[in-house]
Design a protein around this nucleic acid. Structure first.
Lengths: 223, 223
DNA sequence: AAATACTTAGGTATAAATACGCATTAATTA
DNA sequence: TAATTAATGCGTATTTATACCTAAGTATTT
């Protein structure tokens, strides 16, 4: 059996050490040939141009380049690399974005040896692996069998409540503590336009007010 | 030389593994007798009632009970335990709160073996250890020698623009997307009282509006 | 005992946000 | 090309938030 090459991408050394230690002490250890590290998305992309990795564990929230963008770019160059997302949070938006970007797995950082091994085995054999909490989150709203469900979600994904460019831009300015009037001035638009956008964003995200908007802005990492 | 007993407190298993691995592979390894783990502040407090630990590595942001509260409570029962704060972020507020709570060290999670060893040695010998970035943050605004500086900060701490209990409570409810009226109902107070508090908080924090409030709430980790 | 800070609450006013509906134009996609 | 979505803008109304002020009762600290 061919041994696998792994890349760990996370801006926190202790977390990288944690994964490394967990991998080296797990059931999959004999099948691993090397474990490389990168501190952010940019470095990960660079390393992928030099080496070929079988599995990449990718953190989502990182400075320089986040895991979602890095995943997209890496898979553009090499579709055979398997990318497993790693996150602190089981946030709907992050999960779906990573899946959309091409990740074949999603684990939370409170994962132990057994789950990590299971995920590696599954993915090496061409499967997909979502940790339990993540899967539950993903499959909550829809009926059908589990496999169908994931398919449904992928298809529905585009119609989902993801903001448009303009909306994102306005959300950023809201987060910068500007009023609608100030935003309008900034973008050379009517205040009423910003009113509408703001309302649409609130509806799309199903939040109640500005507080909800800012929390979402944090969630998707634009703050 | 007496071997030391260590407790790791963090809600993420990978992070606990990371610290453990880093400790076990470091220079301090021969001096460590055991490494115990807890997943949140509550469990840490409980474990401290059963065992005596020489050093506790304490995460700050955790569910159930955060690191600041846990630190206070643990030190109330045993002042000889040395607590080292561990955080993702070098946020002023967190650092100062942990120092105030009695932590003798503050490390960021991107710490490697060398720093970790250095910190342990320093603290075992009765010293205090702040990782470089943290120390810089702490000492930025004030003149004087480093030791004096820390003293100054401790004394100034109370006069600082930190929110009162009530204000924090209201900020949390604002972050939960409640309106002032709903908050008033929740706390059995007049809406006008909440209006006043909200205004005071905005003034204290020098932010412009709700967006600023929520960003601050994130910064201090109450979201 | 006096000073200080916290909590409470009201007066008054304006600014801003929220809610729903409608409509046009540009851009994208089927 | 037809259909859909994104971006723009306005009408109207209500609710919330922001701003600045005063002030009294409560704790806490000096």
């Amino acid at each position: 059996m061919k041994k696998i090459k792994i890349l760990l991408v996370d801006d926190h050394k202790l977390v990288r050490n944690g994964i490394k230690y967990t991998l080296e002490s797990g059931r999959s250890a004999p099948f691993i040939s090397s474990i490389d590290e990168a501190v952010n998305g940019d470095e990960a992309i660079l390393k992928c141009k030099i080496n070929r990795y079988d599995i990449i564990f990718m953190d989502i929230n990182m400075p320089e380049k986040d895991g979602i963008a890095a995943t997209k770019e890496i898979l553009k160059n090499d579709q055979f690399t398997k990318i497993i997302a790693l996150s602190m949070y089981d946030e709907d938006y992050e999960i779906r974005s990573m899946i959309k970007a091409g990740a074949v797995g999603y684990l939370l950082k409170n994962t132990g040896t057994e789950i990590l091994d299971e995920a590696i085995q599954t993915i090496i054999n061409g499967g997909k692996y979502y940790s339990n909490d993540v899967a539950i989150k993903l499959l909550e709203p829809n009926p059908g069998t589990s496999r169908e469900k994931i398919k449904i979600i992928r298809e529905t994904n585009q119609n989902e409540s993801v903001l448009t460019k303009r909306e994102l831009q306005i959300l950023e300015l809201i987060a910068a503590e500007l009023t609608n009037e100030e935003i309008a001035a900034e973008l050379n638009l009517s205040k009423r336009t910003i009113d509408s956008h703001r309302q649409n964003i609130i509806n799309k995200l199903q939040v109640k007010n500005t507080a909800g908007l800012i929390k979402y802005a944090f969630k998707i990492g634009i703050i």
